[in-house]
């Protein structure tokens, strides 16, 4: 069975998704303080890696990457409520792109599986 990544249209579709997703995140005042002062292009590349991973595209993401990459944010107070916001933005990004509900659920369950790594516990 093909992955959501392939069904979405591969790399080009992920680029489009990153734009929508990152814009939602930056516009969300509840979470955007965690993105202050970051290099937007590097951040977009990381989000592309993340979206590629959660949609089942080619990736070498590991739990350790997620843990190390977010440790400084956990110190800043990153918690479940912020993670929930990000999940919500991911869900609505995929819906905006016309992804079917069952595929969205599959993607969200993969994203959910990173929760403990992201929150370093």
């Amino acid at each position: 069975m093909s992955t959501v990544y392939e069904q979405l249209g591969g790399e080009a579709a992920i680029n489009a998704a990153v734009d929508i997703f990152y814009r939602k995140v930056l516009a969300d005042h509840y979470v955007n303080r965690f993105f202050e002062g970051v290099d937007m292009e590097k951040q977009a590349a990381k989000q592309k890696g993340f979206l590629t991973m959660v949609t089942g595209g080619p990736n070498n993401y590991t739990g350790k990457d997620m843990r190390e990459g977010h440790k400084h944010l956990v110190k800043m107070g990153l918690n479940d409520s912020h993670f929930d916001h990000i999940i919500c933005h991911l869900r609505s990004t995929l819906a905006e792109l016309g992804v079917a509900q069952d595929l969205i659920d599959t993607v969200i369950s993969v994203a959910e599986s990173t929760r403990d790594d992201v929150l370093d516990r």
Binding site: E11, I14, K46, G49, G57, N59, N60
Partner: peptide, 8 residues
Amino acid sequence: SCQSGACQ
């Protein structure tokens, strides 16, 4: 890092 053309 990603070795799949994503992270640049």
